[in-house]
Amino acid sequence: MRRAFLGEFEEIVLLVVAACPAEAYGVTIWEDLQQQTGRSITMSAVHATLYRLEEKGFLSSTMGGATAERGGRRKRFFTLTALGVRALNDVQQVRSRLWQAIPPGKFQLIGG
């Protein structure tokens, strides 16, 4: 299977969903994203990414029950799929391989 490409933002969203202790939906994900990255992110960017990830099969979603707090509208909860886990693992492996490939002491040399 061809490994799906994960964009940077996608990867972070996927990680946020994975890291979320409770059920993750639009607003919580958006909040976490803002906190973790410190960037200002629009809601629509989050939505678009979530749906794209769902289309790619990394996330799955279910509609929750009606709630009183948002005018009775239901929330869509996102969870990681097996494919999503594999994708994150892949990315992680590539990263760690690359990290290991860096010659020891090179960073000191550059002065990072």
């Binding site: 607003v27 809601m43 939505h47 509609m63 707090e69």
Partner: peptide, 16 residues
């Protein structure tokens, strides 16, 4: 097909 949750999310955000 995504109207309901977007509506909900935005309502929540508005509140926030």
């Amino acid at each position: 097909n995504t109207l309901e949750e977007v509506e909900g999310d935005l309502a929540e955000l508005y509140d926030y």
